[in-house]
Design a protein around this nucleic acid. Structure first.
Length: 630
RNA sequence: GGGCCCAUAGCCUAGUUGGAUAGGGCGUCGGACUUCUAAUCCGAAGGUCGGGGGUUCAAAUCCCCCUGGGUCCGCCA
């Protein structure tokens, strides 16, 4: 509705400019005034015109105000100083708005664009840790946002099966007798086909944290401190969790141990190198199977963790295929043909002409391939699959992706658009899978749910256990996702438990507003099967909107605008802020007057129902569930 | 040493294609539950927008310099 209204305002302005014989400016800026008293839309166009017309902004504004004609969505248009302010006709606007909202509210029309979005793509050498979730949550929310904005989005997880890390894991399994338990891996696989049974797969043990062996107790201690310093009731809830039975955690431990062994005896590195070479050659089928099993097992655990966060990829693309299907060779041949390569000891692509000092190495002196070349082949595939290629990357990849982008352009392929994010670190420093210093996402989720259960127990004595756990999970996951998606990605995050898992005024309060709205509708007797039996034609004739209703209407109406603008800049944090504003606006409305039993009950019920839909759909973009009870 | 990112109240943060009184939230202080759920609402205090120059009718926003933090500059991935 705002989009429509903006267009109306723009047309009115353009018509005035025609009448006044002014050149119509290219960008007519329409914005929200700082205060609703100043209207609902405003333009500073007079400032822009002042210079070229050599008149004062005030004069231009009054000329415009004299002549302008507005559509019936507006009540009036006024000048305040040089600003031109449009005021909505809320009687007209609210009815039109309420009528236009259905369950798909916020969904924009199809753009016919296909976007290939790669996100997460963590190395399969251990469980996801909290450094990885920023990628996963931004990626998944962006997917949801871009779909909502009318795009066709295909998400991919790039599986690094060729890296040194994987060879190290295989080395550990084969040569150091650090085998992961076959029976366990098998039964795990059987169980985890059904993601609904996920919690049963996590057994709590009063043991040390996964991957945090003796020498990393420092980190453990510090995390403990963060918790005890905070004045909450969650002490000792944390730190006693082990995910020993979860396969990716096992692999993480194995990886840690191999690292220790290699530190003790550096000659073992040669054996790892030999494994890499053999796997790259691909001729030892037995070895291939072992590599695949190691990667697949880890991935199984990763997928389960992601599923708990409501994240699902459309496809998993294995890196090794690009070597075996000849794509890497094609890339190399293609780049050689451009004339920008040189070969002495190694084959490299020279990029000084493109403003990058650092050359891109395409092939090792021993003839084996490198990650970036394989990644280049992968990007070529993505470029052929979609109209837009979108990568979510840590900011440490900036140089690498710049190099790859230039190479892609040389090969006449689409360079990716990239969303960079800064790191999440612990108060005591960076995380490292290699050193076994990290907080796993599984731990974080477990803790989030525990805290949510604690809160629910305090507030709702009436819920049965099954209900309570389901709601607690929705709240806990919501808190985690909201914590990440509310921030702009270029902000560095120092992880703190209480900031990550806040239930006041954060996501929980938004979910609460949704539950409240739903409960109210149910209580009214007009709401069944998630549907309200009131139409706009049914509402009372004497409905005159009060300030809270107007504020709510205004906020609901902005939703598609936020979707459009957020999708354009490929940022999800405005949606997070928006849905909080919406919940806020609803809570104020809810508190200020009764709905059931008031004179305009039907009108208000309709407004509540549309609010419910808007909150639900906005939360859905953030990958957060909207509970009907909490 | 060079490149990129960040710096906004005690804490977290939005706003950065220049525009109206710098928005939120946490925390603090003071109020509101016999009421459709208080994970809520009402009110208050709290700001040299890291520092210094400059451009402009107008700067958190643009330009230059500086300070502090992060990150990259591997035949690692």
């Amino acid at each position: 509705m705002y989009i429509e209204m903006k267009n109306d305002a723009l047309n009115s302005l353009k018509n005035v400019f025609k009448q006044l014989n002014y050149e119509i400016p290219e960008n007519i800026n329409l914005e929200f005034p700082p205060n609703p008293k100043m209207g609902d839309l405003a333009t500073t166009i007079s400032f822009q015109l002042a210079k070229q017309l050599k008149k004062s902004p005030m004069d231009i504004t009054s000329e415009i105000i004299d002549k302008i004609e507005i559509s019936n969505l507006f009540e009036k248009v006024e000048s305040k100083g040089p600003y031109i302010n449009f005021f909505i006709n809320y009687e007209m606007f609210s009815k039109k708005l309420l009528k236009s909202i259905d369950n798909s509210y916020g969904q924009l029309k199809n753009t016919n664009k296909k976007i290939v979005l790669e996100h997460t793509s963590a190395n399969p050498n251990g469980p996801l840790h909290i450094g990885h979730i920023r990628n996963a949550i931004i990626g998944d929310s962006l997917k949801r946002l871009l779909i909502c904005a009318g795009n066709n989005v295909h998400t991919q997880y790039y599986v690094n099966d060729m890296g040194r890390q994987i060879a190290m894991i295989v080395f550990g399994m084969e040569k150091l007798g650090l085998n992961i338990d076959d029976e366990l891996a098998k039964s795990y696989k059987d169980n985890s086909n059904n993601y609904d049974s996920k919690n049963e797969n996590i057994h709590k043990k009063n043991d040390t944290l996964p991957g945090k062996n003796n020498n990393s107790s420092k980190s453990n201690q510090n995390i403990d401190n963060t918790n005890t310093n905070s004045s909450n009731n969650y002490n000792n809830l944390n730190n006693n969790i082990d995910f020993e039975d979860k396969i990716d955690h096992q692999i993480g431990k194995l990886y840690f141990k191999v690292n220790e062994k290699l530190k003790e005896d550096e000659t073992l590195n040669k054996e790892v190198d030999s494994l890499i070479k053999q796997y790259e050659a691909g001729e030892n089928h037995n070895l291939n199977k072992i590599f695949e099993k190691a990667v697949d097992s880890c991935l199984l655990g990763t997928k389960e963790t992601l599923a708990k966060l409501n994240i699902k990829h459309d496809d998993f693309i294995w890196e090794g295929q690009f070597l075996r299907n000849g794509d890497v060779d094609k890339v190399i041949d293609g780049l050689k043909a451009t004339g920008y390569t040189s070969e002495e000891e190694v084959l490299q692509l020279n990029l000084e002409k493109f403003g990058i000092e650092k050359e891109l190495i395409l092939r090792r002196s021993d003839g084996t391939s490198l990650y970036s070349t394989r990644d280049l082949a992968y990007h070529m595939k993505k470029s052929q699959e979609g109209d837009i290629v979108l990568d979510i990357l840590g900011s440490d990849h900036k140089l690498a992706i710049d190099q790859i982008s230039i190479a892609l352009e040389l090969l006449n392929q689409i360079a990716p658009e990239v969303i960079f994010y800064e790191f999440i670190t612990l108060p005591e420093g960076s995380m490292s899978t290699r050193k076994g210093v990290f907080i796993s996402v599984d731990e974080l989720i477990e803790e989030a749910i525990k805290r949510a259960i604690f809160e629910l127990n305090e507030r709702r004595k009436d819920l049965d256990k099954v209900e309570l756990e389901k709601i607690a999970e929705e709240i806990g996951i919501g808190a985690i996702r909201y914590y990440i998606s509310r921030l702009s990605p270029e902000k560095h995050i120092t992880f703190k438990w209480d900031e990550a898992l806040s239930f006041e005024r954060g996501c929980a309060s938004i979910q609460y507003a949704h539950a409240r709205a739903t409960k109210l509708l149910e209580k009214s007797g007009h709401f069944e099967d998630n549907k309200l039996d009131i139409a706009i034609e049914d509402i009372e004739d004497n409905w005159i909107l009060n300030e809270h209703e107007i504020d709510l209407i205004r906020t609901i109406a902005k939703f598609p605008l936020f979707v459009e603008e957020s999708a354009t800049i490929m940022r999800v944090h405005p949606i997070a802020q928006y849905v909080q504003d919406l919940a806020n606006s609803f809570n104020k409305f809810y508190k200020s007057q009764a709905v059931i039993g008031c004179e305009t009950e039907l009108a208000r019920l309709l407004l509540v129902d549309k609010t419910r839909i808007a909150i639900k759909n906005a939360l859905d973009i953030l990958g957060v569930k909207a509970p009907v009870k909490m």
